[in-house]
Design a protein around this nucleic acid. Sequence first.
DNA 1: ACCCAGGTTGACGCATGCGTAACCGTAACG
DNA 2: CGTTACGGTTACGCATGCGTCAACCTGGGT
Lengths: 131, 131
Amino acid sequence: MTDANMTIREMCDAFEVSPRTLRFYEAKELLFPIREGQKRWFTKRDRARLKLILEGKRFGFSLEDIRQLLDLYDQGPNGPEIQLAQAYELAQKRLAEMKAERDELTAAISALQERLAWAAERLEKRDQNAA
Amino acid sequence: MTDANMTIREMCDAFEVSPRTLRFYEAKELLFPIREGQKRWFTKRDRARLKLILEGKRFGFSLEDIRQLLDLYDQGPNGPEIQLAQAYELAQKRLAEMKAERDELTAAISALQERLAWAAERLEKRDQNAA
DNA sequence: ACCCAGGTTGACGCATGCGTAACCGTAACG
DNA sequence: CGTTACGGTTACGCATGCGTCAACCTGGGT
């Protein structure tokens, strides 16, 4: 049953994260495993959320941003449209940031490459002199 | 005289950094202003170094990396070739990292764009239903 | 004499995302 | 019955690059 709840270790193996990470996410209210005494049982919902969390991180969202997005997501398609629009906007903002980052990175790469080329030239000349 | 030493404020204005930043760089041994009693006098050399520091930051080097690069730079073309080669290698490594970052970023951008497009579709459908 | 601007030295704070002890409880295994 | 093994909690540490007080000193102008 893929529906069965999972222990912390099973979660760690399934998603390649540490127990510390899962507990941390729980503390930050990103996950809500069922607490059976001391133990945690991660539900299907937790797994879905964790998947989104890891994706969100890849996009460069902060955990706090992700938490808000997940909350909106939970309100679901039934929730007020305004919130969906908010999530959409947040994602677009982030997208714009990522593009800006990429452009700056590309420019920096070019600049660094130029410098390296220049340095390589000088190194060659020196080698010739040394020879 | 562009050779004249500069006060901390003049440096701040010239490079758009805060006094805190300059003192921080001095503490980290990236800059070596002349200490006249309590005051600092930033020399031409300090200005050249700061320029390189700010460029280095743009390339994503850590201040510690930059410090090492500057030290090598100070050894100058007279210093042992090995060190120049080291600096060159360090820069190439960083360049490779930057390219990898850019590729990952580009991939993430595509993924996020797809998601947004998908979401936009769903939002449209909902709007139609709501209408 | 007095005051103010601007510089100086600590030293703690912040933001992020966990890592890493240190210590405790419990259940299973041999 | 002792020993792992796994899970739990608390809490400090880390890395980066400064921001932000707090409190003091110093030179110059009035």
